[in-house]
Design a binder for these strands. Sequence first.
RNA 1: GCGCUCGUAGCUCAGCCGGAUAGAGCAACUGCCUUCUAAGCAGUAGGCCGCAGGUUCGAGUCCUGCCGAGCGCACCA
Length: 564
Amino acid sequence: MTPAELADAILLAVRDAVAANELPAEVVAAPLDIKVERPRQKEHGDYATSIALVISKTAGKPPRDVAVALQARLSTVAGIESVEIAGPGFLNIRLEAAAQGQLAKAIVTTGATYGTVDTLKGRVINLEFISANPTGPLHLGHARWAAVGDALGRVLSAAGAEVTREFYVNDVGVQMDRFGASMMAIARGEAVPEDGYHGAYIPELSAQIVAENPAIMELSGVDQLQAFRDAGYTLQLKQQQDVLSQFGTHFDVWFSETTLHNSGAVDAAIEKLREQGHVDDKDGAVWLRTTDFGDDKDRVMIKADGEKTYFAADAAYYLDKRERGFQQCIYMLGADHHGYVQRLRAIAACAGDDPDQSIDVLIGQLVKIVEDGKEMRLSKRAGNIITLEDLVEWVGVDAARYSLARSSADTPLTLDTKILTSRTTTNPVFTVQYAHARISSVLRNAVELKILGSGDIAAALEQAGEFDPSLLTHEREGDLLGALAEFPRVVASAAELSEPHRVARYLEELAGTYHRFYDACRVLPHGDEDVTDLVRARLHLCAATRVVVANGLALLGVSAPERM
RNA sequence: GCGCUCGUAGCUCAGCCGGAUAGAGCAACUGCCUUCUAAGCAGUAGGCCGCAGGUUCGAGUCCUGCCGAGCGCACCA
């Protein structure tokens, strides 16, 4: 019996009590959200619900009276061993071992799709993240989004959503010109302009451009600048794509801002918004009246000099996403861009959408990196940035992705290079991966002992003999089964709240629960002992745990090693 | 000055959109390897959940104010 099934049973009990006039009809007038929790305290049972407390007001009865009515009905449900009333009116529920143990086999059979849910089924989502300027390497802040955004994409998909991952390439504007001018200056042996880019990658790009196209030095003035800018853009974008690919972060769409301008989409967007009645002409400029929708000032779309602003492109970009059929647009922005939130919402509102439905902005707080107690600031224009590549080089893809994705994006995160470079137990990813490797080892040994056949684990277990779920009665086995049952709920809440770090935290807990089980419950027979039903039951439990650990790590884009 | 985000163990962070005695990892200390991976397990210690009010059966969680940290407040990109 899973938590979801238990919640259904509780709902039935409530309805039944209403039908028997023990509770008033108002209780079920509105849809009831039955919360089933796993209590911290063992004495509080396998599961607990506070439903009696929640509905006592509408029921017009003290919580404990409500609880009594539900207790009597739940006690008779198949698979439920006991129901106790505790405290102010909690219902503490204990399941029969077999009802819980059955899950082990179900998970093994389900395999890679265990943990997928349909809570977001049919929702069409655009997930935009990183969206860096193609004027330099990706830095630590981008790395956070690469890890978190990619994990979120996987989690949303697992929840049934139709997700398009998108990278908005900011390839318009003076930053691009400064980028080009910087490379050009190097090539000509001149000093890089004050407002240019001073990173070590600039001379490298410059040299590569000249090597591939020596004729570029024959150009002059604006032509040369444009040639450097365009060539550098191509190389740098490619570099970002390669790095992200190596990082395991995949994008469905690389959307160039330039295309918005060239296709006339920006002009069309301004006209469209004008039709909606939110555009003003003032002081020779064209404004979007975002203050109609909570922004603190109106925003310029076309400057008095005729130039279109970045904001105008943003508006066009949103309208483009909308036309492509996305119901929800998720933006992941750095903390230094949080001022955009109201603006983005105002664009949606001006276009006639409900921002609460169509816009979801996630703010990523700063990633700091500490080295010898000294904080290193990240600045894109300064030369001493820490890049995504640096991070990967130090700790590897798995540790980098995991340590960035295991924390909520909206809390500032400090990574310690000492810890990250030590490659020891201090990194939680090892605990989780170790659990996977450990289980794999047990299953390998089972194959060697001829308890299991080689090949597909589900088939091997099937052939090994009967599975008796009622044998998994040890406290640690119950803990493990309970943890395994949580996985779909974790995925659902991670997707709903756009918080993939929940998956990581869950995995750490699951790994700990497995290690405790492993310590207390010997799986394989010693020496020439018989292969008992208990051995088979525990092998199911091990295999099920491995499935969940592997599925969870996959959601984070982290590998699940068979050996460590 | 206005706004956004954040303040939880020595450190890094969780806390399941109001539930029971606030958790994990690391660091410290004590035990456990002739048996499935000791990258593990068991235990000890560590807390005014920034401060003060409010809302209610019940607050780390919601509201208000204050303090502190970070970041924003362009006809920049």
